[in-house]
């Protein structure tokens, strides 16, 4: 298979995944007992007739299949429908929330990668006890302390006791917390991979050729670590959805996580659907890019 065929295959797979995700999201939202009218009825004392009329207006009485294809057709043109609760276009609501989440996710991801790569690479090249301990510390930290616990502790220490940060709305604390958590998840496997590579026959050959250690690190060690780093990054990016959600709620950031959570509470179907689909398609896109990158970097995957 040549490169273009490979990439076409990956894209086709991504498209199928996107469709499957839309089906699942659509069904998932609707199998939850109770709809928006039920919620409004409890909040605002609606009569049975008023509820019927509302359901008809919102199209909640139509067959699921019709509804689904209506939704998909509109979504394809960028129209995610209107919020049942606020009457605003869902696309706008998601669009307003997206920058916050993207900033949070991207910066913490980059912090995680840089931290993980630098500690793992130094630990491999120095083989020192201190640097190795640092890798282990990061790893244990991310297992032992969930981000929301660290988040609460950070608010207590930095906002309430020390008064350095506002309680709500500051981006720095969640970015650092998720960043360290990400680093902890990849530093250890990355280190193991690098250490194995450092003892491999081709690195020994490179040393026998008299190459400089920095050249060996760049041309021999890093490429070995990239496939596993890509795979782990994919997992982390998916995990970021949950990670950013709790952080957004905890630190009062109006990102896509808090938006989704509010919409779920209010049975605001179009908003839940819209937000979840945007997140899911983002993950599919990221994974597809990862796979294609992997294919470009490792020549052995060419069949």
């Amino acid at each position: 298979m040549n490169l273009l065929q490979d990439i076409a295959f990956q894209l086709a797979r991504a498209l199928m995944q996107a469709f499957a995700i839309m089906v699942i999201v659509f069904l998932l939202v609707r199998v939850t007992p109770g709809d928006v009218v039920d919620v409004l009825a409890i909040e605002g004392d609606l009569t049975a007739e008023q509820q019927e009329v509302m359901r008809e207006e919102l199209g909640l009485d139509r067959p699921l299949v019709t509804e689904f294809f209506n939704w998909v057709r509109q979504a394809a043109t960028g129209d995610l429908g209107q919020s049942l609760r606020y009457g605003r276009p869902v696309a706008d609501m998601v669009g307003n929330a997206l920058p916050t989440t993207l900033t949070l996710a991207a910066s913490s991801f980059i912090i995680g990668l840089v931290l993980a790569f630098s500690t793992a690479l130094t630990a491999t090249m120095t083989q020192g006890r201190f640097t190795t301990s640092l890798v282990n510390l990061l790893n244990i930290w991310s297992i032992a302390f969930p981000t929301f616990c660290v988040g609460v502790a950070a608010i207590l220490v930095f906002s309430i006791w020390l008064g350095w940060l506002p309680v709500l709305g500051a981006m720095i604390a969640p970015v650092v917390i998720i960043g360290i958590d990400n680093a902890g998840q990849i530093a250890k496997p990355l280190f193991e991979e690098l250490r194995e590579a450092a003892n491999s026959a081709h690195v020994r050959t490179a040393r026998a050729k008299g190459l400089h250690p920095v050249r060996i690190a760049i041309a021999y060690l890093l490429p070995t670590a990239i496939p596993i780093a890509l795979a782990l990054s994919g997992l982390i990016l998916a995990g970021l959805v949950a990670g950013t959600l709790t952080m957004e709620v905890l630190f009062g950031l109006s990102g896509i996580g808090s938006l989704t959570l509010q919409a779920i509470h209010g049975r605001d179907y179009p908003v839940v659907q819209g937000a979840v689909v945007v997140i899911a398609l983002g993950i599919v896109a990221i994974n597809t890019v990862m796979d294609i990158l992997h294919r470009l970097i490792d020549p052995r995957l060419a069949r």
Binding site: A201, H202, R204, K209, G210, A219, P223, P299
Partner: peptide
């Protein structure tokens, strides 16, 4: 390092494992 590859060179057993798989 100043001697390896210049004055003393080495050929190993398993050439597949000894060549860097990532570069041509």
């Amino acid at each position: 390092r100043t001697i390896r590859g210049k004055r003393i060179a080495m050929v190993f057993q398993d050439p597949m494992a000894c060549l860097n798989p990532f570069s041509s």
